[in-house]
Amino acid sequence: MARENGTPPLRFERVSVNFPGVDALREVSFEVPAGETRIFFGAAGAGKTIALKVALGLVRPDSGSVFVFGEDITKLKEQDLFEIRSRVGMLFQESALFDSLTIEENVAYPLVNQKAIHCPPEEVAQRVREALEFVELGHTLEKFPSELSGGMRRRAAIARAVVTNPPLILYDSPTAGLDPVTAHTIVALIMKQRDLRRTTTIMVTHRYQNGNLLANYRFDAATGTVVPAKGVAETASRTKFLGFREGQLVFEGTQAELDASTDNYVRKFVKHNG
């Protein structure tokens, strides 16, 4: 498998997270090579979101190691995590835009606050505008998050996640609670970011279509639309599906392997959403 550089952006080694009375993650191991896409699926509470939070160092695992760009973040102090986090974008489930700030200030937040980014103050406005235009929200700069619709908030949050142009982006249920048309727009944006900037992408989703889109389509910069990937086999092999169940990783494979799976739990996600 072609790797763009040696160290994978993200690697979990036997990671366990225990909350009082429940194991949120149990001995989860996987690796995401640079430029590849991973789709996390599974029932609610299966550990998908926790896995993303562990990857960012927001939740500390009770055992195991998490390597982000080759560095074991489980050994780092909170202060030292900020450097790593500046290279990882994250879209939170409910967008998590700051209510008290305008959309412009929200998108500027990582540029202004992440020390490792070193964005000159005079460039901030320009980069914010670019990021918002990327998600087609150029006209909302002065608005507050509460004035936007759910889909627009999600897009603004994507702008905030991509504004620093991080090489690894984690999307937590980017289409949850959205209508199919808006959901498609969001996935197209994720694809656009992935294909134009070669971002390593992890997406948590309940919708099979989202995974299907990411696995078999690509963003065409010339026409600005989503088109079937030419070398489908190539794209498909660079997109893998990871199934979570009660904190354990129960499936890891390509879409073809997912479709062929005989596991009852895994099949639910193929059938019901297909």
């Binding site: 939170f92 835009l97 700051f98 990582p110």
Partner: peptide, 11 residues
């Protein structure tokens, strides 16, 4: 609403 997590994630 995960804004505290977002704050930590954004430096």
């Amino acid at each position: 609403t995960e804004q505290i997590d977002a704050m930590r994630a954004l430096g």
